[in-house]
Every structure is written in structure tokens, then in C-alpha cells.
Design a protein around this nucleic acid. Sequence first.
DNA 1: AATCGAAACAACCGCCACCCT
DNA 2: CAGGGTGGCGGTTGTTTCGAT
Length: 210
Amino acid sequence: MGSGNREGVKRGAWSREEDVLLKKCIQIYGEGRWHLVPLRAGLNRCRKSCRLRWVNYLSPNIKRGCFTADEVDLLRRLHKLLGNRWSLIAGRIPGRTANDVKNFWNTHMAKTSSSPKGSKPVEKKEIIKPKPHNVAMSINKPQQSSEWGSNVVDTRETNKISGKSVFPTQKGSFSGGGPTADNWPTQADGGNGLSEISLGFWKMLEFGDV
DNA sequence: AATCGAAACAACCGCCACCCT
DNA sequence: CAGGGTGGCGGTTGTTTCGAT
């Protein structure tokens, strides 16, 4: 992919068998260390492809199907605040991935949005810039095998129940959950690691000031 | 029933930030 | 401090599906 040799590496749609292999591998070794995943799983895929497949499709954390009205509303507000920070936005919409959000925006919202694709590009917001990498590393570090497995189940259940919850409470419930966004501070954090976002941020969302 | 275009979704690519040596 | 390696992100492209004609 982006980096590395593309020769001999399979590309394109994933087969069921590949999915199973990847799932097994993640269940055993946990998320992270993606460069080792193809080897461990016996997949002829590049690390990025494996990660993407897991994050966007195989992760038990993912909710599929149409966006609810609440989600759409939240998405609209978040996008207004954050711009095209899809991973951040996705982190605030339980069960949705950055790719999902991005696709949804580009296909649905961009047309109706005040700043459509074709016209003016969404200006980059300077306000909020968390440091996903640091936290991500520390989150993924542990070889959370069995422990991680149990979390998976819990999260799935949680999502089932709180599918409509606007503010996720899932932080920590899914330790491998993705540096993408779970390290993004939640309301429940009480501001921990939230130095760059004021409480007003959430108030704005909650009360629709955005 | 066949064809075509649009929409939706999955995957790829290039780049950047960070960590480690 | 510099350079290499890795993870992650946003943008873009390719493929599939769906609806209209």
C-alpha cells in the first residue's frame, strides 16, 4: 500500500476466509502491531489493508445500517465544529467508523450541507487537535488476548443496548477500540485529557448551538 | 428485459506524526 | 539529533447495487 512493496500482496475485496483469519489473529494477539498481523494471520495482505478491514468492517464495535436521525443530527453538528476530522467525528458516534462517516457525509450530507463537496471545501478547524497517537500506542500496547476477547462481547452488548445513545460511554469498555477515536475524551471523562476541548463543546452539541 | 446513470460502499493511496534506536 | 519504522488519517478511486427509462 502506501508504503512497502505491492508485489505479491493481495488487493481488492476480502474473502470470507481472509476475514476469519484476520478475526482469529486479532482475537489471539489483540489489536495493534499491524505490521505483524499479515504474518500472524497468514494473510497475503499489507498491514494497512488488515487494519482497515478490521477497523471498518470486522471490529465487533461496528454498527451497520442506516444512520438514525440522531446520528445524522450529531454528525452535522460535529462536522460543523470539527470539519473533516472523520475519525474524531466517528469517535463521537457510537459504532460508526471514520470511513462510514466519511462515506455517509460524501454521499448524503455533502449535497444538503451548506458547504457541499462541489462548492466551497470545508475549512479546516484549528480548534481541536488531540494527539491520537500517544494514547493509541498505550492502549494497544498490552497483548490483550483473552481479556480483550471478553471486552469484545461486552461492547457488542453495550452497543445493542445503547445504540441510540448520543454520547458514548464505551470508553474503556473496548480497550482495543481504536486509536481512531476512543482515546478521544468523552464527556464521562470529566475532562481528563480534555485540555483542548472545553466543557462548552459538549454543551454546544447537547443544546444544539452548533 | 436490457441498458444506463447515480448512489452507496469498500478499499487503496499518500502523507504525516510519533516512537524507538 | 537524525533516520527508520509503524500507526493512523483524510482524500480518492474502484466496484457493486439500485432505480429510472
